[in-house]
């Protein structure tokens, strides 16, 4: 990704990272930088190491070599990971509970109302729809109030319509934060990403792709977005 201009601030800076999975090296001498306050979307074939990179930044796995510099991170996984015995409000304040802090219920209520769940505060996850569960998970992520948010295919289990709404909501609620979004959906990357990277090869390398010159979340009907989606799909399939 080359040397950065001095006026760009990076929230995440990885230099020369090496990581192997099951004995096989995933990447070696990998450099990744996420610009502060921007959404970076990461695409690439399954098994290339996208989730491993995310876990590396989240501090869940250590690198065999290299240096990872990052601010405090909030993590949102592929499934909503809601606790089945806790209602929406309790799930939203899980982070405080797990750190033994006093939960900020007022803020949790406000955020749940913001995502349209003001009537589902006492609902157990089993009684919520997939989209509602993902919204609770989003609020739980927001409650952490971390400058860097890592998301691993957070919308992949939702249907197309619900996913569209969830993308708009996430773009609104996470504005101003540094976001790394791993996705398999080229359209999702082009709707939400200020930067779009493709991860390919073994050892894996990142390549930055051009994005339409519009502010996210971009209109899916925009010809530039659609054209970019076609290019991206062709590139990923190649």
């Amino acid at each position: 990704m080359g040397e950065a201009a001095p006026d760009i601030e990076f929230a995440v800076d990885i230099r020369g990272a090496a990581l192997s999975y099951g004995g096989a090296p995933l990447f070696d001498e990998l450099d990744v930088r996420l610009e502060a306050g921007l959404w970076t979307c990461l695409l690439g074939p399954s098994g290339v190491g996208k989730t491993s990179l995310l876990r590396l930044i989240a501090g869940l796995d250590g690198a065999a070599a290299g240096r990872v510099r990052t601010g405090p991170v909030a993590y949102m996984g592929q499934s909503d990971l809601l606790l089945p015995w806790a209602n929406s409000l309790e799930n939203a304040v899980l982070g405080a509970r797990l750190r033994g802090e006093r939960p900020d219920f007022d803020r949790a209520r406000r955020l749940l109302a913001d995502v349209g769940l003001e009537h589902g505060l006492q609902a157990l996850p089993a009684t919520l729809s997939g989209g509602e569960r993902q919204r609770v998970a989003l609020v739980r992520t927001l409650m952490e109030d971390r400058p860097v948010v890592l998301m691993d295919e957070p919308f992949s289990s939702l249907d197309a319509i619900t996913r569209h709404a969830a993308q708009d909501l996430a773009a609104r609620m996470l504005a101003g934060r540094t976001v790394l979004l791993v996705t398999h959906d080229p359209l999702e990357a082009l709707r939400l990403g200020d930067r779009v990277h493709v991860m390919t090869g073994r050892p894996a390398a990142l390549e930055s792709l051009p994005v339409p010159d519009l502010a996210p979340p971009r209109d899916v009907r925009d010809p530039a977005v659609l054209a970019a989606q076609g290019d991206l799909l062709a590139r990923l399939a190649a």
Binding site: V73, Y75, Q78, L81, L98, R99
Partner: peptide, 24 residues
């Protein structure tokens, strides 16, 4: 997945036991 989430939230092993492992 819950344990990963808990670690990313900075939970101690004791609180992971109390809040996640025991109820689960």
């Amino acid at each position: 997945g819950w344990l990963d989430l808990a670690r990313s939230m900075g939970a101690s092993r004791w609180r992971q036991l109390l809040r996640l492992r025991i109820p689960a």
